[in-house]
Design a protein around this nucleic acid. Structure first.
Length: 986
DNA sequence: CGCTGGAGCCAG
DNA sequence: CATCGCTGGCTCCAGCG
């Protein structure tokens, strides 16, 4: 590093953690395929666009969503002629690849340039990974990264090739292969120092929009623009003659779709002796608006309506989860489009490629700022400096013993010089996309299975290799090509690849390859060889084997071992029988198979039937951070917001749920009120409670009410709540015929200007979520009225039943006041009806668990009465219709059918009497939960009909009348009769 | 025996 | 200032009829 750069570095006092906090907002890259489906952070361009529209256009824009939404774009999609081959079975054989390896896909105009990957793959027995790993066989400090950089900087042609290649990749990945407008045509741009958005993002933007990028300022003459956020005094003088602009020039030009005059963004103004920054109109690079933003963000506590959004925006784990879900959804979409893809059958031999970025977050974050030296300094990605968790650390840090998930404070004890870098979620997405793009373009694999943002499993049938010879060699070649391409495309991110005949072996090979290497073991054909290869790995390298399983195995089979046993150790010491007895049938069997490098049935599902494997079965929100509530009402509001989030999602997915689960974390009795980690949950007990709807629903009112009621059942004092999760289970597709029909508020009209078109009620709610939020705020800003969500509207204005229900639900709120007895009086218990006994036992169990804070083996029993098969013995004689029914769901179904069939004429009085008697029985038997559930089912059903029948419908009115006047009061009285005895506490 | 709800585990 | 401890899927187990 030269003196100037050093001086600049030292003069820059901003903490690294400030870098890149807000840069995701402005990127043009945010709008591609999977990112948009989730809660991508707000998008200023979009907001800008919206606010530029007049009311008329805005409403029209929203209305356009009444039509079916355009299909999401795929990250695996590209538009070239051979598109179809993407997922096809082995259309392009390796032989054609050998010709293509030279990157002539990149740029046909310069085929003469030797590609580095040719060097790497040309040697037949070259086991080394040139040029990436050759000079740096193992760990970081040896890696001669500079050589590679030099390689590019010396050869401008190559540099441009690479940019062209990247441009093409980006276009494919981000813009359906179409070029972006050439905003920076004829510009040759150099970036100086640290910038916001960071260097990597600016680079991408510049080349995407037609500019040329200079990595080094050696030949200053050719550079037309220099981008910098800040300049040292010395640089200021040095750059006097250049067009030095702020990064905003780039972002604003792109937003404006044309190159804006550089003078407006000049960093050095001629008449400014003090070198004061010229702050440009929209947003200064660093300054007050940012600070304000941060402050307001920081003050968001869990009561703030935007808390969820702001928390999610910064949570690595949330990002990981949503990325994964998105990738899975995308896979299914693609899979369905290409019906010719076949799962792998049991008898087929395959080569599995397990591909994974090396310390992904750390690498990407490090590359975004030239001050971070990835291969020399110990680096980690984390938010804070003490009890902040390390999301990812580079291999230098690992050599000190630093591990992912460690708190920064403890890591610093191992490695005092550890440098913390900020997250850069947007760039992670971009680089991930590039990986998947490259994998797809390779046209080598039969399937590309997403594992996560930084990891994929690729499959190739052995039978589809060219000839049958040298499978090993072909695999090695393809791994090396991929590694090289990813390295180039991502500006220096390395992937490691493990390749083997099974999922397990590929995974272990990957472990062997890391960091920055490849390991192909397709040549280990007989069992002994494979065994020998596997023997050295520690047990926890096996998939699905974590802390707990290792612990159990150690305890039972290696009581004296001081370290984690290896696969070889376990294989020598265990039998199928011993494993299943220690770990259970399935787990034991699975591990037993793993010991011979075989995949078990469950693991193979991803190969056999990927669609089934990736299908979404549940959806949930977990928040176990910053949860601090004072009152149950605040919690109710929070639950509402969580449910809103979830229902909005399943609504977008067109799904409904028959079962919801609430899971809470409650501060352990002995745990301090505030744990070591700021706003952390500390040590907690967890409790969960699930309940079912008679008919699957996506209705927020029902779901939220149910969850709130579950929360009360769990009887957690609001102040002790430290975490809350809501899950919608057993998701199913909503029947499509519904909801297309006319809804009762179809004539909803926007107030005000009569020239403004009528807003179609469905339209707003059919918009993609990311758009919805901005449109909503835009509407609010203009005092335009947004129609309520169809489902919610029903609950509010159409169905008094619902309203009643809400009140009914709330009526239980204040009734759990008394303390539970610390021990149960046996006599007292014996004299109670069994149902009640169970209920009290359950409550007692909660208290006991809470008191003891026992972590394991303290299962709460008799939890759900809602779904235990109904004891119909006494009701059977009287109610013929229920005779054959044993399961609650059948009962709900019957009631649903009953309502459906009588919705126009109303229920028959005799039937109602019969039904009344049935309810009486339930009440008498204290099965109020069941009765409650039935009422809920009926309410739900009636609301459903309310959507399609006129409010005059006599039959429906009768039904509602019955529900309101007879059924609910009956349940209410039974409920108030019951609650004092149940003795919850709040 | 098969089913269910709750808890636990694991991965990234 | 801290700091952002998610989420989906499988398995195990006890209890029920």
């Amino acid at each position: 590093m030269d003196q100037d750069a050093l001086a600049e570095l030292l003069s820059d006092t901003t903490e690294p953690s400030d870098v890149g906090q807000s840069q995701q907002l402005d990127s043009p890259l945010h709008s591609y395929s999977f990112v948009t489906t989730q809660n991508a952070p707000g998008c200023t361009q979009q907001q800008r666009l919206l606010s530029s529209l007049n009311d008329h256009s805005l409403v029209n824009l929203v209305n356009s969503y009444e039509a079916p939404q355009p299909a999401k774009r795929s990250l695996l999609e590209h538009e070239s002629d051979d598109d179809e081959q993407n997922w096809d079975s082995n259309i392009s054989h390796l032989s054609s690849h050998q010709n293509n390896v030279n990157f002539d896909v990149i740029d046909d105009e310069s085929p003469t340039v030797a590609s580095p990957s040719i060097v790497a793959t040309s040697g037949e027995n070259s086991d080394d990974d040139q040029p990436i790993t050759d000079a740096h066989p193992r760990v970081a400090s040896n890696i001669n990264f500079g050589d590679y950089g030099q390689y590019f900087s010396d050869k401008k042609v190559l540099q441009q090739d690479r940019d062209q290649y990247m441009k093409k990749l980006y276009q494919n990945a981000l813009n359906d292969g179409k070029p972006f407008p050439p905003v920076f045509k004829d510009c040759i741009i150099y970036i100086n120092g640290r910038t916001d958005p960071d260097r990597l993002q600016l680079h991408q933007k510049i080349i995407l929009y037609g500019g040329q990028f200079m990595h080094f300022l050696s030949g200053k003459t050719s550079v037309t623009h220099i981008i910098a956020s800040n300049l040292t005094a010395k640089k200021r003088v040095e750059f006097q003659k250049y067009k030095v602009v702020t990064p905003q020039w780039v972002t604003d030009s792109i937003a404006a779709n044309k190159r804006l005059p550089w003078q407006d963004f000049a960093l050095i103004t001629g008449d400014d002796d003090q070198g004061k920054l010229k702050l440009t109109k929209a947003k200064p690079p660093k300054g007050e608006p940012n600070v304000e933003d941060k402050n307001s963000e920081n003050t968001l506590d869990c009561n703030h309506p935007d808390f969820l959004r702001s928390f999610f925006a910064k949570s690595r784990l949330h990002h990981l989860s949503t990325w994964k879900a998105d990738l899975r959804a995308l896979f299914c979409e693609r899979y369905l489009e290409h019906s010719n893809i076949q799962g792998i059958t049991e008898n087929e031999s395959v080569a599995i490629f397990h591909i994974d970025f090396d310390c992904f977050f750390a690498t990407v974050s490090a590359l975004s700022d030239p001050r971070y030296r990835l291969y020399e300094d110990p680096l980690a990605v984390a938010h804070g400096n003490n009890s902040s968790e390390i999301a990812s650390c580079n291999y230098v840090a690992r050599s000190f013993g630093v591990k992912n998930g460690m708190w920064v404070r403890s890591a610093r004890r191992l490695c005092p010089k550890l440098v913390c870098m900020p997250y850069n979620f947007e760039q992670y997405e971009v680089n991930s996309k590039l990986l998947y793009q490259i994998l797809a373009e390779t046209h080598f694999f039969d399937m590309i299975l997403p594992v996560s943002i930084d990891e994929a499993i690729c499959v190739k049938r052995v039978s589809t290799f060219t000839g049958f010879h040298d499978v090993q060699g072909q695999c090695e070649m393809v791994t090396q090509t991929i590694r090289q391409q990813v390295f180039d495309a991502t500006n220096g991110c390395t992937v490691s690849i493990g390749c083997g005949p099974s999922l397990v072996s590929a995974r272990l090979a990957l472990k062997d390859a890391k960091p920055n290497g490849k390991r192909v073991i397709m040549n280990l054909t007989n069992e002994t060889e494979l065994d020998n290869f596997q023997a050295k790995f520690p047990l926890n390298d096996l998939p699905g084997v974590g802390f707990s399983i290792v612990h159990k195995i150690r305890q039972q089979l290696f009581p004296d071992a001081s370290t984690t046993p290896t696969i070889g150790d376990l294989k020598a010491k265990s039998t199928l029988k011993s494993l299943t007895s220690i770990l259970g049938t399935k787990t034991g069997r699975k591990i037993h198979l793993f010991l011979s490098a075989k995949d078990d049935e469950e693991n193979s599902r991803i190969l056999r039937n990927p669609l089934d494997f990736f299908a979404r079965k549940s959806i949930s929100v977990d928040i176990n951070y910053a949860i601090r509530f004072d009152s149950i009402h605040d919690i109710d509001d929070f639950i509402d917001r969580v449910c809103e989030h979830l229902t909005s999602k399943i609504h977008d997915l067109g799904m409904v749920t028959p079962q919801v689960t609430l899971k809470i974390m409650r501060r352990c009795e002995h745990a301090p009120i505030e744990p070591a980690k700021y706003l952390g949950s500390g040590e907690c007990d967890t409790f969960s409670k699930s309940s079912r709807f008679g008919i699957p629903t996506d209705e927020i009112g029902l779901i939220a009410t149910e969850i709130k009621s579950s929360f009360r059942m769990l009887a957690c004092p609001p102040k002790d709540l430290r975490g809350l999760a809501v899950q919608l289970n057993k998701l199913e597709m909503k029947a499509t015929r519904n909801y297309q029909k006319k809804l009762p508020f179809g004539d909803a009209i926007l107030t005000g200007d009569s020239n403004i078109p009528v807003l179609k009620p469905n339209a707003f709610h059919s918009m993609p979520r990311i758009l919805k939020e901005d449109v909503r705020s835009e509407f609010t800003k203009r005092h335009l009225q947004i129609p309520p969500s169809p489902t919610r509207n029903l609950t509010v204005s159409v169905s008094p039943v619902k309203e009643y229900w809400d009140r009914f639900g709330k009526s239980t709120k204040d009734s759990f006041k008394q303390e539970l007895p610390s021990t149960l009086d046996e006599d007292f218990m014996r004299n109670l009806p069994p149902e009640l006994q169970r209920e009290i036992k359950r409550d007692h169990a909660i208290v006991k668990k809470t008191r003891n804070s026992v972590r394991k083996g303290n299962v709460i029993k008799d939890y759900g009465t809602t779904n235990s098969p109904l004891s119909l013995r006494s009701t059977l004689e009287e109610i013929e219709q229920f005779q054959s029914l044993e399961r609650p769901r059948d009962i709900y179904h019957l009631i649903g059918t009953w309502i459906d069939q009588t919705i126009t004429v109303g229920p028959h009085a005799d039937d109602l009497d019969l039904f009344d008697r049935y309810l009486d029985k339930l009440v008498l038997k204290r099965k109020t939960n069941r009765a409650l559930q039935i009422a809920r089912t009926m309410s739900c059903r009636l609301e459903y009909h309310a959507a399609f029948t006129s409010s005059e419908s006599k039959g429906r009115q009768e039904w509602e009348e019955y529900l309101l006047r007879r059924m609910i009061p009956k349940l209410n009285s039974s409920c108030s009769f019951r609650t004092p005895q149940v003795q919850f506490e709040i």
